[in-house]
Structure formats: structure tokens, C-alpha cells
């Protein structure tokens, strides 16, 4: 069983931050991700689409006080890929020590 695997999709800075933000949580709203990353709606949508296309994250739509809200969560596949990627980063850092 593999313990680490570099993932080029996840490694891009913004996507890495999205996955890192989602990893300790159940689900996160679009505006929270945007505010934490400090990027525009369009840039965030682009990265989210890339992560959705590979099946790493999924979205749910809900209405709160009549306003539509989009919630995102890491899928099992995405969580596993993120964990393996983090392990790979740790391995790279430790290799030099």
C-alpha cells in the first residue's frame, strides 16, 4: 500500500489551500473559502471546478434566509489524495534532513 503520492492537481497553491481548509471540516461555504484564500469569485470557481472534475470535492446547494449558498466538502477520494500528498511533502522535507 502506498504511503505517499505527489498530486499535481492538489499541489497548485490555491487548490492546496482549498483542500487544507476543507480537510479538518465537514463542509465549508463558498464565501468562507474565498475570504480565507483572499481570491476573487471567478478564480475560486475555476479551482473548484478543477477539483470537482477529478472528484476530489463535491458541492451542495442550500438556501439560508432565501439566499442560495454553496457548500463544499472533500470526498473520500479527495481526502485520501490530500493525505497522500501531505505525506509526500513531509517525505521530501525529511529526506534532506
Amino acid at each position: 500500500m502506498e504511503n505517499s503520492k505527489f498530486d499535481a492537481i492538489i499541489h497548485a497553491p490555491n487548490r492546496l489551500q482549498i483542500c487544507a481548509l476543507l480537510s479538518p471540516l465537514e463542509q465549508v461555504e463558498f464565501r468562507v473559502i474565498r475570504d480565507e484564500l483572499g481570491i476573487s469569485d471567478s478564480v475560486l470557481s475555476k479551482h473548484i471546478k478543477q477539483l470537482e472534475d477529478v472528484g476530489y470535492i463535491k458541492q451542495k446547494k442550500s438556501k439560508v434566509n432565501g439566499r442560495a449558498r454553496r457548500w463544499f466538502h472533500l470526498t473520500t477520494k479527495g481526502r485520501r489524495a490530500f493525505e497522500l500528498h501531505v505525506e509526500e511533502l513531509k517525505r521530501i522535507v525529511n529526506d534532506l534532513l
Binding site: 492546496l16 487544507a20 480537510s23 479538518p24 471540516l25 501531505v86 511533502l89 522535507v93
Partner: peptide, 20 residues
Amino acid sequence: KSREAQEALDSINEMEHAGL
């Protein structure tokens, strides 16, 4: 490569902390 990986790990920790 190691420095980039460390920076990525730092960024991950920062975001996980921000999420919590």
C-alpha cells in the same frame, strides 16, 4: 524542492488552523 515542500506544508498548517 525541500524548501518548496516546507512552504507548502506551512501553508497547509495555516489553512487548517484558519478552518478550525
